[in-house]
Design a protein around this nucleic acid. Structure first.
Lengths: 248, 248
DNA sequence: CCGACTTTGTGCAAACGTTCACAAGGGCGT
DNA sequence: ACGCCCTTGTGAACGTTTGCACAAAGTCGG
C-alpha cells in the first residue's frame, strides 16, 4: 500500500509525512510575508518551522523546483505553490456539528476562516442552544445536517459532539455525502472506505506527554514488575464472556 | 537518534509510534471492561481500535507477554499494564493557561480528569475572566503561573491562549519548571532541550483533509502549471530583503 | 567575463514502521 | 493423557522517512 498521492500538476506523488508538514511551512511563510521578507533560505524556514533543513528542502522539492540556488525561496511564490498543492486556493465549506465549548472554540477560531475554510453551518441537537448566535452564525438544529450538506456542497465535516452521538452524526454526514471528517470526539469512528477521517484527541496527547514525563522522572525504579494485586487469570473470572464485537 | 525509550520495568524500549497508539487501546479496553468483557483477542481489540491486528500484537508485545495463547488478553490486566506503562497510575496535575472557549472546553472535558489527570488551575490574563468559575475552578490570574507550578508540583502545562501570547506563556511555564507542554496555539514554540512539546492544531488537520479531498475531486485537471500571475522574481521585488531571522 | 561564494536539490544509506506468515504455546474436549 | 484448535508473539521482508553529504546551479563583486 503506497502512501503516495498523485499530484494535480503531473508530478510524481507527495509522501504523507510531507503533506503533514506543509501546513506548518505555510504558516511560517505567512509570518515571514507579514514582516515583508521577500526571500528565505531553507535554513531560515526550517529553523522557524522547527525541522531539519534537509527535510524541508526535500519536502519542497516534491512540489517542484521553486527555489533559486544561492538565494533561497521567494516567500510569496512559495506561499502560493504550497497553498495550491494543499488545495487551499479553493473555498471549503465546513460543517461543524456540536456547539458546546469545543464547537464554539472552532467557530471562533481565526485561522479557520482565513485559509480557504468557511463555516457553512454550526449545528447542535440541544434545543436550548439552537437559535443562539455564535461567531456570527445562528446555531441550527442537528436535523439540518443533510440539507446543509446538500445545499452548500459541504465535503468536510467536523464532529465536536460528545462521544455518545459521534458515530450517529458521522453516519449521517457520510450518508449525506461528506467524504472528509475531522473528529474531536474521544472514540474510534467507523466509516466506509473512501471516507477520510482524522482525529484530534486531547486526552491522547496528554497521555503521550505523561509517558515521556514519567520516563524522565523514574530514572531507575525497577520494581521487579510487582504491582498487580493477584493472578490475572483468576482476577475476575466471572462476567459474561459473550464475544460481542465493538463495545458501543 | 534512536526514538526508543527505556521502560521502567526493565524491558528494552518502546517505539514512539507504539506509544501514540497505547492511549487508543486503553480507551477501547475501558469500553470492553464496561461491557463486562473479561478477555479479548487481538483481532477484536484491533478491530475496535481501528488498526491491523499484527500491529496491535507487536505493540503490546513491547510491554511484555501479557496475553494467553489460544485465549487472548485479560481486559482488566491489560488495562492495568497499559496504564502503568503510560504513567497513568500516578496523579498528573495539569495547568491550563487561557480560559477562552478552548480552555473552557478542556476544563470541562470529561476524559481529562478521569485518567489520572487533574486540573491544577485554570488561568487567564483577561481581568474580566479572572474570578469567574469554570467547571468548578475559579479562574486565576496569569500572574499565578509560577506559584501554581511550584505549589502543586505541576509538570504538564496546556497552552490555550492566542498565538500572540503563547511563547510568553511557554517561557514562563518552562522557567517555572514545567517540562511537558501541550500547545493549542497555532504557532511553533521555541523551547530549550529537555522540554517536551506536543501540538494540537485544528487548522493543520483541516488542511490535510483539504489536500486529500482535493485529490479525490480533481481526478484530472492538468492546468499545465499555469495559475501564477507573473514571473516570481519580479513580483514584489521591493520590500526590505533584510535577512531577519524568525518573524515574531 | 570570471572566480568565489552561497544555497538548492538529491543520491544514498541508515533508521524506523508496517505487514505477512508461521512456529510456539496454551486451553479444551474427549 | 492426548491431540486438536485457537491465538499469541515474532522473524523476516518490505515500504517509508530521515539525515548526511555533495554536485549542480545560481548570484555577486571585481
Amino acid at each position: 500500500m503506497s502512501r503516495r498521492t498523485v499530484s494535480a500538476n503531473g508530478s510524481q506523488g507527495i509522501p504523507e509525512a510531507t503533506i503533514a508538514r506543509l501546513p506548518v511551512y505555510l504558516r511560517v511563510l505567512y509570518a515571514f510575508a507579514e514582516q515583508d521578507v521577500a526571500t528565505v533560505s531553507s535554513d531560515e524556514l526550517a529553523a522557524a518551522a522547527g525541522v531539519n533543513s534537509a527535510k524541508l528542502r526535500k519536502d519542497l522539492s516534491h512540489l517542484g523546483s521553486y527555489g533559486t540556488r544561492g538565494v533561497g525561496y521567494d516567500v510569496d511564490y512559495l506561499v502560493y505553490q504550497v497553498s495550491r498543492e494543499l488545495g487551499l486556493t479553493q473555498d471549503w465549506p465546513v460543517l461543524i456539528v456540536g456547539a458546546g465549548n469545543l464547537g464554539r472554540a472552532l467557530a471562533n477560531y481565526g485561522g479557520f476562516a482565513s485559509r480557504g475554510f468557511r463555516v457553512a453551518a454550526l449545528l447542535d441537537s440541544d434545543p436550548d442552544v439552537v437559535g443562539t448566535e455564535i461567531a456570527g452564525h445562528a446555531v441550527g438544529s442537528a436535523d439540518q445536517i443533510e440539507s446543509v450538506v446538500a445545499r452548500q456542497g459541504v465535503s468536510i465535516g467536523v464532529i465536536a459532539t460528545p462521544a455518545g452521538s459521534a458515530q450517529d452524526v458521522c453516519d449521517r454526514l457520510v450518508a449525506a455525502g461528506v467524504t472528509s471528517i475531522l473528529n474531536f470526539a474521544p472514540m474510534v469512528l467507523n466509516v466506509p472506505s473512501g471516507v477520510d477521517v482524522r482525529k484530534v484527541d486531547l486526552s491522547i496527547e496528554l497521555q503521550i506527554l505523561a509517558f515521556h514525563a514519567q520516563r524522565r522522572s523514574v530514572v531507575r525504579v525497577d520494581t521487579g514488575d510487582r504491582g498487580w494485586p493477584d493472578d490475572p487469570a483468576t482476577l475476575h473470572a466471572t462476567s459474561d464472556v459473550a464475544g460481542r464485537g465493538v463495545p458501543a
